[in-house]
């Protein structure tokens, strides 16, 4: 028998035990005795409760609970009605949180019988399927990706950034103006731009209707296959380039090479 001092306690054991403890890597002696000594026979066992904690309390909290590329359904399951106002007032950090917040604007509009007003933010109205969303104006920001992949409902806003209504399949958007690539890959629904639009509106569209009351940039209706684009002002060069179907009506003047290598699309250019 050898006496062993571990921590501040003395324990006794034989060489064989010492070898065993050395093999565990713990270098311990009389471990069971020490455990019994520590617990004094008061051994209880309770399984770890697997219950989840309280509901979501912040955007960061929600982002932590979601996978890297969350779906709207997953967000809707976690977000209760009472927490939505708090989440909508959050400031997102990075694209992922912006996307999550965008989904939340849609969820808010879908759950509300009244129009929902939010401050201008990227991805607002993402995959909106019903209800009305109004983006208030702060006179500075031009949020991008508003109304992306929406299928129904209405979005009203002032100046929009790029990718307005990208991939939308239904519903409608009214904006004062927009940046580039508005209504790209659109297959349904409608969009109205009350002022000027940037370049590349209606790229690769297969449906839907777009009205621009002001001027538009170059390559209106590029690669368009179906749908309708009306511009009441002037447009830039290459209107309807490579388009294969649909109708592009330009009431003002068009730049050079309108309809270049297009086939099947109808392009009407001329003053009212």
């Amino acid at each position: 028998m050898i006496t062993y001092r571990l921590f501040d306690l003395d324990f006794e054991g034989d060489d064989k035990q010492f070898d065993l403890y050395s093999r565990t890597g713990a270098g311990m002696m009389g471990l069971k005795d020490m455990m019994e000594n520590a617990y004094g026979g008061r051994i209880r066992h309770r399984r770890l409760e697997s219950g989840r904690g309280d509901g979501v309390i912040s955007l960061e909290d929600l982002a932590d609970r979601l996978p890297d590329h969350p779906e709207k359904r997953e967000i809707a399951e976690l977000v209760s009605d009472d927490v939505i106002p708090r989440l909508l007032s959050s400031r997102p950090h990075g694209k992922r949180e912006s996307v999550i917040l965008g989904y939340i604007t849609s969820i808010a509009a879908e759950r509300s019988k009244q129009p929902v007003t939010v401050h201008p933010m990227d991805f607002a109205g993402l995959e909106l399927s019903r209800g009305t969303l109004i983006l208030s104006s702060n006179g500075k920001s031009r949020p991008s990706h508003v109304g992306e992949r929406m299928s129904s409902g209405i979005i009203k806003m002032c100046d929009a950034g790029d990718y307005l209504g990208q991939g939308m399949t239904g519903g409608g958007i009214v904006a004062s103006s927009c940046g580039t690539y508005a209504f790209r890959n659109m297959s349904g629904g409608w969009g109205v731009i009350l002022g000027d639009a940037g370049s590349f509106i209606g790229v690769n569209n297969s449906g839907g209707k777009i009205l621009v009351k002001g001027n538009a940039g170059e390559r209106v209706g590029w690669l368009m296959r179906s749908g309708r684009i009306t511009v009441l002002g002037d447009v830039g060069d290459y209107a309807g380039i490579l388009a294969k179907g649909g109708l592009i009506r330009i009431r003002g003047g068009a730049g050079e090479n309108a309809g270049w290598r297009a086939g099947g699309v109808r392009i009407e250019i001329g003053r009212r």
Binding site: L20, Y21, M28, L31, K32, M35, I43, R44, H45
Partner: peptide, 18 residues
């Protein structure tokens, strides 16, 4: 103190060869 007693005892008995 309250809940890990059983698992600690299982581990220590295995280390002790019991």
């Amino acid at each position: 103190v309250n809940e890990r007693g059983e698992m600690n005892m299982i581990f220590s008995r295995a280390v002790d060869g019991e």
